[in-house]
Write a protein that binds this DNA or RNA. Structure first.
Lengths: 218, 218
DNA sequence: ATTTATTTTTAGGTTTACCTAAATTATATT
DNA sequence: AATATAATTTAGGTAAACCTAAAAATAAAT
């Protein structure tokens, strides 16, 4: 099956939303795609006739098996390109998302298979997200929000939600990277801030707002 | 200035046509783009308002300086990606054109500059065509058709017009590659076939049809 | 210099992917 | 259970990029 760029984007977003939530509401898809509900409805009808989603008017929906396969193909491309951009071209991991959004729509499967090979079949992209293999198999990793980590248990920083420059500046200041070992020592009830230890550095206290944007793998 | 994929394709085709011919007719652009004359007219009006072409209704047209710059940017991207596909991913040089047609529209200039760097600033793509630098400077090379080479003068095979599998099979048989040293020894009047020497191999005779598809640099 | 043929443009339609505003259905509140 | 609120769909419109068929302009041929 062949999909337009737009269809691929919808499929990808539906996939991520249903991973969070089991099923997807049209409104959340609209906000995730930065578009309007009416446009979403139109696309849902098309994806339904293409048997990409299970859909009944006015109800929430999910991807079919074919839809999941399609989503994982796009995600595979996206993450392989991100890996390439960081590890071969020397981009910072926070600068590659937009470029990969374009590259992921280049259609050749031969290209992706050779790229995968050239990169030596990486398992994770620069944000710590797993890269599906050519058959759509993907390492399921739960990204636990830092604030919900069990106390004093070593974990690894796996991804950062907000990747604004302001956020990156903060991360740099605290010396937090993807892959850093992190321990949650205690919560402060008053303002939700937490005490953490990054690698073998002295403990620091970070705000709830910052903490909420950091995800970890146990 | 920002261009759609379609606009970029038109600009690129106009560039190639005006390199051959000085100016471009709507009909030749239509056939080169595999589209209809009416669609071309529409696009010409748009490119004109965007000041990409010098255009007056019913007359032939050419790119403006801005248009040439835009064309060279697309061509630079196309050829750098082709180089990447062949020299890093191991594609055959005849398999990369279509993929590069998609990659050339990825917009990031930072990406292209890093790719160029990563590839160590190649001057020529796998077909022997020169790669414009980031300022749009391009080595002007005249590709002489093999049949018009001066007799017994060493030249280099620079490009192949028809890249069908049938053609590639022939080239393989005669052991002709991009970059091979080639000498034209004589013409046979009867059927237009020619006697050539490739590198230090024994001379061979090739048909006019084959010869017409081979271009050289002196 | 007319007539004929070719090229180019205009007019009017299609598809994809958006949009706003209004109508409909589902959900929440009293 | 009736009503208010929220979510979703429908109706109708726009822009880009294509199309066919007819009209207009240019080039070629008698």
């Amino acid at each position: 099956m062949n999909f337009s760029h737009s269809e691929e984007n919808y499929i990808k977003h539906i996939y991520h939303l249903q991973m969070d939530n089991g099923e997807v509401a049209a409104s959340s898809l609209a906000s995730s795609m930065q578009t309007k509900a009416a446009s979403v409805t139109e696309m849902l009808k098309k994806l339904n006739t293409k048997k990409v989603i299970h859909y009944q008017p006015y109800k929430n929906f999910t991807l079919t098996d074919a839809g999941i396969r399609a989503a994982l193909e796009v995600i595979r491309k996206h993450r392989l390109w991100e890996y390439f951009l960081v590890n071969k071209l020397g981009f910072n991991w926070d600068a590659v998302h937009e470029i990969a959004e374009e590259l992921e729509h280049v259609s050749s499967l031969e290209l992706i298979s050779r790229l995968d090979n050239y990169l030596e079949n990486p398992m994770f992209d620069p944000h710590g997200d797993p890269i599906p293999d050519s058959k759509g198999k993907i390492k399921m990793v739960k990204h636990v929000p830092l604030v919900k980590l069990p106390l004093k248990t070593a974990a690894k920083v796996s991804s950062i939600k907000d990747q604004s420059p302001a956020m990156l500046q903060m991360l740099k200041h605290y010396n937090i990277h993807i892959g850093s070992t992190i321990k949650l020592n205690r919560h402060f009830e008053f303002d939700g801030s937490i005490e953490i230890r990054i690698d073998k550095q002295p403990v620091s206290i970070i705000s709830e707002q910052l903490a909420k944007n950091i995800y970890c793998i146990l």
